[in-house]
């Protein structure tokens, strides 16, 4: 009987100490974590559009330069030059890949691709975030979609060169971009 009471007392003490700590830390860090998330999201879009910013001015720069259009299917970002960006999100080889693609006026040609977050294998799949690879998307066209080919084999505007060693992640990324491009394209069919 004494054992059981001791056990209950112990669980109560430990539970109180740990719960207080966790609730306190959570309340303290929550606003900063939310702010970091927001900066991360805005900075991905600004970087992909190629707009300069600093962490302090980021929200102002964003609202000054980019208009956000919310459709039921998708949120689209537009700059005054007519370029538009659509966000993409989907399963990579290891976990979600989230990013944004900027389209030229014709809604067919890519002018930039940026990746916000990914959890691909470090050193292999994670190479999809390398500038050299992302830059290879510039000028590619959805006709009607992008096609992944082996490294150095692209022969026309729909072909994207893969990365040796990151094949699975490249396949996943192209699929995610193609899928969300379809939504982007159909969103504008009515306009």
């Amino acid at each position: 009987m004494k054992d059981k009471i001791m056990m209950i007392v112990f669980v109560l003490i430990l539970g109180t100490i740990l719960a207080t700590t966790l609730v306190g830390v959570d309340a303290f860090t929550e606003p900063m974590i939310a702010k970091n998330e927001k900066i991360k999201e805005l900075s991905t879009i600004l970087k992909t559009f190629g707009i300069e910013y600093t962490d302090e001015t980021i929200e102002k720069v964003f609202t000054d330069n980019i208009s956000t259009i919310v459709y039921p299917e998708m949120t689209i970002y537009k700059v005054s030059s007519g370029e538009m960006a659509f966000p993409f999100e989907g399963s990579g080889f290891q976990g979600p890949i989230i990013g944004v693609a900027v389209m030229a006026d014709d809604k067919k040609t890519i002018t930039a691709v940026g990746i916000k977050s990914q959890v691909e294998t470090p050193g292999l799949g994670s190479r999809i975030t390398e500038k050299q690879f992302l830059d290879s998307f510039i000028g590619k066209q959805f006709d009607p979609e992008l096609i992944l080919v082996g490294a150095g084999k692209s022969s026309n505007k729909t072909d994207v060169d893969g990365i040796t060693g990151a094949t699975m992640s490249c396949i996943a990324l192209i699929k995610v971009i193609n899928d969300d491009y379809k939504i982007f394209n159909s969103t504008f069919k009515g306009d």
Partner: peptide
């Protein structure tokens, strides 16, 4: 519990 504390603090101050 303490690892969660570390994780939250890193996320908040050193993203």
């Amino acid at each position: 519990s303490f690892v969660i504390v570390v994780d939250r603090v890193l996320k908040a101050y050193f993203p």
